[in-house]
Amino acid sequence: MAPSVPLTERKIRLSKPAIVWILLLLPFALAMVAMTIGRYQISVLDTVKILLSPISPAYAGDIPEVAKRLVLQIRAPRILAALLIGASFGATGTAFQAIFKNPLVDSNILGVTTGAGFGAAIAILLRGTHWQIQISAFLFGLLAVSLSFFGSRLYKATPLLVLTLMGILVGSLFSSLTALLKYMADPLDSLPAITFWLLGSLTNITWRSLPVLAAIALTGLVFFWFLGWRFNIISLGDEEAKSLGINPVHMKMMIIFAATLMTAAAVSISGVIGWVGLVIPHAGRMMVGPDHKRLIPATIGLGAAFLLLIDLIARALLPGEIPLGVLTGLVGVPLLMGLLRKNRTGW
């Protein structure tokens, strides 16, 4: 029995595949808009001309050099990074929720973000360069997940519960260590730096930050997208997956490996941006349902669009940068509440 639709709700109802396509195109449209917005006023027309100038410099002949550089060297890499990082958080959050059969976990369930935070903090304390901070964050992110994963292997079986518990333990360990570093840090310089890193920011993105991030993120996203539908089966648990001819252990290891690389790569550049990996999957499910065949692309699009939007606010609203970790909650919570009100469905 199809529930009768009240007259007021008989608007144009988009099919779920159509919504997925819209969600996938949304970040690109937003990116174009974001290119034209910033503290520095550049008209839409000029922005377009500037964006075309790499093809033929003639397009932007009359535009000041500073505007060109701003769009091409400052805004463009930052917007691309926001897209990649947002998409990574969205997709890895969805992936982790599927393999943990739990809609309340996010990308940090195995401690990757906390580990990366510690890595960054230690590099900041040792006065590392941006590169060194990034690499340290990335490596410690991987280390944290390895600890969780192989720690749980100490038990004969690897039930999800043990893995989750290990993730929580390793997360606590690294957050304690980070707290220790913050305690040791000079309140005049390294402490604010660590604090700001832990709140997340894309301020320091340059083109040089992008290749590694893009390589890891895009590979991971394609992998997840192709795997898409199979997340459904994984989310039913090991026994059912096995009985349906899938080796859940191998598949989960691959997913965890990919998701960890993606999250670590993203976090090492952006700093800690919580919440996206938790909430985007929910928003996605409300829009396209729980089927991962659609949910994975939907959360890729949603995550990218969401972080782009957040970062746009962070960089353009006030003269000072607003930490992303602050905005994700401030913007995301009302957004999600609105969604929850609209469709009162389960997960």
Binding site: G38, L70, F196, R315, P319
Partner: peptide, 9 residues
């Protein structure tokens, strides 16, 4: 305050 380069421009 943390700012972005665009603001410095």
């Amino acid at each position: 305050n943390d700012v972005n380069l665009e603001q410095v421009v």
